[in-house]
Structures are given as C-alpha cells and as structure tokens.
C-alpha cells in the first residue's frame, strides 16, 4: 500500500477495485485507520470507518443499499454519504474515496 502526500493528508491506494464484489464491502488498514470501503451497485465507492461506534462491530461485513450500511451486530444503520446514523448511534467517520485506473484510492487527512 503506497501513500502519496497531499496538502492536508495522504492518499492511499488500496489495490484493484475488483477486490470488492458489487454490493459488498471490504476493510483496509489505511495509514493507521481502519476503513470499510463499499462498492455500490452503480459502481461508485464509499469509505467509512470500519468499526461501529456502538459496540465495535465490523462495518465492512454489513449489508448496504443505495443509502445506508447496516452494522451486522445490532443492525444500526449509517448513511453511506455522511456517516450519520439513522438509528441513533454515534456517527461513523467518512473518508474521501475514488477510483484511479481501476485502483481504490482512500484519502486520509
């Protein structure tokens, strides 16, 4: 995993996007952060912190739709775009993520 310095943070490559099946998520350790990256059906990516603030559940194992991810432990829901919980839990941090030449790039500030 290589890092490229940017103004106020670092962009990390997390390997080819094929590592994540459509509609699922995978977790990456990115510059000391645990990040869950999801590949939506429309092909776009979303990245959020990988640990549920409620009881530490593995967010990357959760099921998603267009709007939310459900933590697999107690089904707390978090918006993929904002990290805000729709079920009253504390929010998840979100990370900028994009595709570059088929590679997943997560930006950690």
């Amino acid at each position: 995993m290589s890092g490229t310095g940017l103004a106020a943070g670092v962009a990390y490559s997390c390997g080819p996007v094929e590592a994540i099946p459509y509609g699922e998520g995978r977790a990456f350790a990115v510059g000391g952060h645990q990040v869950a990256v999801f590949r939506k059906r429309d092909g776009t990516l979303r990245a959020l912190s990988a640990v549920c603030p409620h009881k530490g559940g593995p967010i990357a194992d959760g099921q998603i739709d267009n709007k939310v991810v459900l933590c697999p432990l107690h089904l707390n829901a978090f918006e993929l775009d904002t990290g805000c919980s729709t079920t009253g839990a504390a929010p998840l941090r979100i990370y900028p993520v994009y595709l570059e030449d088929g590679e997943i790039v997560v930006f950690v500030s």
């Binding site: 590592a19 099946p21 977790a27 990456f28 640990v51």
Partner: peptide, 13 residues
C-alpha cells in the same frame, strides 16, 4: 467471491 474471508477488522481494536 474476492475477499470472502478477508478480515473486516484489519487492526486489533
């Protein structure tokens, strides 16, 4: 599927 059994908590938390 790719990463079917990949850990979802890559760092011990």
């Amino acid at each position: 599927t790719p990463g079917q059994f990949r850990t979802s908590l890559p760092l011990e938390v």
